[in-house]
Design a protein around this nucleic acid. Structure first.
Lengths: 232, 232
DNA sequence: CGTTTTCCTTGACTTAAGTCAACAAACATT
DNA sequence: AATGTTTGTTGACTTAAGTCAAGGAAAACG
């Protein structure tokens, strides 16, 4: 793996910290590797540290009694996860699984907490990460509860397009099955919504490239949470 | 209002901090009072500090384009809220409204951040609060996405019964309309589920007292997320 | 390379929960 | 106590999205 310090220095969590602090933090890390599909932790496990994705992709998810999966988050390079048990002292509230070959940097709890004690700015960074995470969950709850699937999908596509800085195409970075799980629905339903939105001239689906034909229309659906009557 | 220090000393956020730190923190607070129905802040407002409930009750919620409301949280005495903007620097992601006459203790952002800089244990407490909040949202997303309304209601009633340390009765502390909004449904649906669960002999509804007649049965529904076939 | 497995789509059908409307019950207020 | 307002309940109906089943497309694998 590349130098740990180079990877973490560019993450929101560690950005802006001075070289000395970074070195201290690096000293406590451990590298861990996972194959595709391998579990990193399971709901109920004790958490004795958190992770940052060095490379690869990790999904955090819950499973219902019937086996339906709800993805809470998909984390990529530079993103931290699994911090909740570090600060609550309680077990992991969800599962984490590598969805491709993945390398992680592990930060053991006790050593990391000591670093926080000595570095208020690290503490503030971590609070920023936790608070931003809360903000995102707020949006996810709003989407699940107040928007229909077309509204959630529209918001998701607009997000992708923004992140990828391409106003005309949203390139899907995970399988449609996993998008369904992230949006709180099932593949069949997602597939039908794609078809309907394409029929309405809003998008064109080309494999994992979604051409954004009518951005304004998609924004309206994301905003109102559903397809307007005229498009049904 | 009673001495601020007495109120906050018993909250999870400030518990265990020494007298000296508490006094410092108290010095920066401002009391604010709100009548029933009064807004404390609105989604999109800038947050220049956070609050702790001295007495009363505050709901945090989102509203859809059609006016449907999703309650994210209801906070009572001793509970902090509105911290997200303090640490993200972004506006409030939701609305806050007093649902009864309420007194709040306000902690201005800059002064509080200074306190954190000087007191690592205060920082760790705050991280604990944020992390616990994340954990709760995790459960809320699971409920919304993976459980039907009977499952959500069952989990809610069991929670109430646990908090109130009474295995036989769950006393509703907010209106059924607000419970509906908290559970991501509407009053009509909630009312019908109460009726069905009562007909199935699981509970008996006596105004705001819900008698728990079949705890095991209710636990099963909370676990499986839905009423079993035999009870339909 | 071909085979197997996973992923995606479509159709027919079912169902949980929402809408609209009417009304009853509880509560607050003069 | 009488009035109006909020809160809760019930019925008839609609609808978004889920289930089950089948088949096709794409990707992974030996």
């Amino acid at each position: 793996m590349k130098n740990v310090i180079k990877i973490i220095a560019n993450t929101p969590l560690f950005k802006g910290l001075n070289e000395h602090v970074l070195q201290e933090v690096c000293a406590i890390t451990v590298q861990k590797d996972y194959g595709k599909g391998q579990f990193i932790f399971t709901e109920g496990d004790d958490g004795n540290g958190f992770y940052i994705v060095a490379n690869g992709k990790v999904k955090i998810f819950k499973v219902s009694a019937e086996g339906k999966e709800q993805i809470l988050h998909i984390f990529g390079q530079g993103e931290p996860f699994g911090e909740v048990p570090v600060f609550t002292g309680r077990p992991f509230p969800a599962n984490a699984q590598a969805i491709v070959k993945t390398s992680l940097i592990f930060f053991p709890r006790n050593a990391f907490v000591e670093n926080i004690n000595r570095n208020p700015s690290l503490a503030l960074s971590m609070m920023g990460v936790l608070a931003m995470r809360l903000r995102e969950f707020t949006v996810q709850i709003e989407n699940l509860s107040l928007k229909e699937v077309p509204g959630r999908l529209s918001a998701y596509l607009l997000n992708l397009s923004d992140e990828q800085k391409n106003r005309d195409i949203a390139r899907l970075t995970i399988s449609k099955n996993q998008i369904a799980s992230l949006l709180g629905t099932i593949p069949e339903t997602l597939s039908r919504i794609f078809t309907r939105m394409a029929a309405a001239g809003l998008i064109k689906v080309q494999g994992s490239d979604i051409l954004i034909l009518d951005r304004k229309g998609i924004e309206d659906i994301a905003e109102n949470g559903k397809l307007p009557e005229i498009l049904k």
